[in-house]
Amino acid sequence: MDVFMKGLSKAKEGVVAAAEKTKQGVAEAAGKTKEGVLYVGSKTKEGVVHGVATVAEKTKEQVTNVGGAVVTGVTAVAQKTVEGAGSIAAATGFVKKDQLGKNEEGAPQEGILEDMPVDPDNEAYEMPSEEGYQDYEPEA
């Protein structure tokens, strides 16, 4: 019985440690998101679009440190934060509304985080759909 109880105690310690790591990862992701939003706020009209992409990228980098179902929630929060940063930029006159959601080359930025393969159960990952990809044929 002692062996059984000791095993359960060790398992509990492992769960607590994993929860603490997840909590730490979420806190880091939130900190990076805040950094990115402050970065966007300090940019001029020309830099705002690039700044919004930076927020998304920093958040995406930190999301990889967070495991399990938390990833889905962090990704949703990050996307809403990026959308909010863009709205703030438009409201303050840093950028025109028609410039939001495009990178410096004018290509749409939507789907940055949505296409990231995420499995809350950590069982399997699927690649994003290939609808947006084109076949590449090298020139002879």
Rank of each mutant, 00 (worst) to 15 (best):
A91M: 11
Y39I: 08
M1G: 00
A11L: 15
G106S: 13
G25M: 14
N65Y: 11
S129R: 04
V48K: 01
E20T: 09
G86N: 06
I88P: 02
Y133N: 13
G67W: 15
D121W: 08
A30E: 00
G14I: 14
K60Q: 06
E13F: 07
E46N: 12
V71R: 10
V26L: 15
G106M: 05
G106V: 05
E28G: 05
P120A: 08
E46I: 02
E57I: 10
H50K: 11
Y125K: 09
E130C: 08
V70H: 01
V37S: 01
G73K: 11
E131S: 14
E110H: 04
D121C: 05
N103V: 10
E139C: 02
E46D: 14
D2S: 03
D121P: 06
Y125R: 09
K23A: 10
E105Q: 08
E105D: 07
F94H: 05
E114H: 08
E28D: 04
G84W: 13
L38C: 10
G41I: 08
A27C: 10
V52N: 01
D135F: 07
Q62N: 12
V16N: 04
A78G: 06
V40G: 00
D119S: 05
T64P: 02
K45Q: 02
E105R: 10
P117Q: 12
Q99A: 13
P128C: 08
S87N: 08
G84D: 03
V52K: 02
V63D: 01
A78C: 10
E114W: 05
T81M: 08
A124D: 13
V74T: 01
V77E: 01
Q24K: 09
D115M: 10
A29P: 00
T75H: 13
E20W: 14
S129G: 10
V71Y: 15
Q134T: 03
S87I: 13
A90F: 13
G111Y: 12
E35V: 08
S129T: 09
Y39L: 12
G47K: 06
V49T: 08
K23F: 15
V26E: 00
V48R: 01
Q62F: 12
Q24T: 14
T44R: 02
K34E: 00
P120V: 05
G7T: 06
P138R: 08
T44S: 06
V15M: 12
Y136R: 09
S42Q: 08
A85V: 15
D2N: 15
G73R: 08
T54W: 12
G14F: 14
V48Q: 00
P138G: 12
Q134L: 11
G106N: 03
E35M: 15
K12L: 14
E83P: 05
H50N: 08
G14V: 15
I88N: 03
K10P: 00
I112W: 09
F94E: 02
I112V: 14
G68S: 07
N103W: 11
V63W: 15
A27P: 00
Q24W: 09
T22Q: 00
K97Q: 04
E35R: 12
T72P: 01
V66W: 10
M127N: 09
K12Y: 14
V49S: 11
K21N: 03
V74I: 05
E35Y: 08
K34G: 01
K58I: 05
S87M: 07
K97P: 11
E126N: 09
A90V: 03
S9V: 09
G41K: 03
E114G: 14
A140C: 04
K12F: 04
T44K: 01
M116Y: 04
A76Y: 15
K80M: 09
E61R: 12
A76F: 09
A78E: 01
G25T: 12
E57Y: 06
G51L: 11
E57G: 06
G7E: 02
V70Y: 15
V95C: 09
V55M: 06
T92K: 02
G68K: 13
E139N: 11
A19M: 06
T81F: 08
L100P: 13
D2G: 01
A76D: 03
Q99Y: 09
E131K: 10
G68L: 10
A91Y: 14
F94Y: 15
V26A: 04
K58M: 10
M1R: 00
G14K: 12
V118Q: 02
L38W: 09
T92P: 05
E110F: 11
E13T: 09
V15L: 13
A56Y: 12
A78T: 10
K45W: 15
K23T: 03
A78P: 02
V74A: 04
G132D: 10
L100A: 12
V82K: 08
K96F: 12
F4V: 02
D135L: 08
V70L: 15
A29K: 05
A29C: 10
A29Q: 02
G36D: 01
E131H: 11
A17P: 00
P138Y: 10
P117Y: 07
E57S: 07
S42F: 09
G36T: 12
E104V: 08
A53I: 15
G106T: 08
V37H: 00
E114I: 11
E28W: 06
Q134F: 09
G68D: 13
G93P: 05
G86Q: 12
G84Y: 13
V55H: 01
A85M: 13
A78S: 05
V118H: 06
K21Y: 11
K10A: 03
T54I: 12
E126A: 15
V37N: 00
T92Y: 04
E130W: 13
A85L: 14
K45F: 13
A69K: 11
T22I: 13
Q62L: 10
G86V: 12
A19P: 00
Y39A: 07
K58T: 05
E35G: 02
G93S: 05
E83T: 12
A69T: 08
V16D: 01
G73C: 13
K45D: 00
E35H: 06
E61A: 06
E13Y: 07
D2V: 01
A29H: 02
L8Y: 01
Q79A: 07
D119A: 14
V70A: 05
G86S: 14
T44W: 15
E110D: 07
T72F: 08
K58L: 12
F94L: 09
T22K: 00
K34V: 13
A89M: 06
V48H: 00
G51T: 07
T72N: 08
A140F: 15
K102S: 06
T54A: 05
G51Y: 11
P117K: 08
Y39W: 09
A11S: 03
V66D: 01
V70S: 02
T33S: 05
E137G: 08
K34L: 10
G84S: 10
G101D: 14
E20A: 06
D135N: 06
T54Y: 15
G7R: 06
Q79S: 07
V40N: 00
A85G: 04
A69G: 05
E28Q: 14
G93Y: 09
P128K: 07
V66G: 02
A91D: 03
A53N: 12
G41R: 03
Q109S: 10
L8T: 00
D98N: 15
Q134D: 06
G25D: 02
K12V: 14
M1N: 00
G67A: 15
T92G: 09
M127W: 03
P128Y: 04
K23E: 00
V48F: 03
Y125C: 09
V48D: 00
G106I: 12
E57D: 09
V63R: 02
E35A: 08
V55P: 00
D135R: 09
S87R: 04
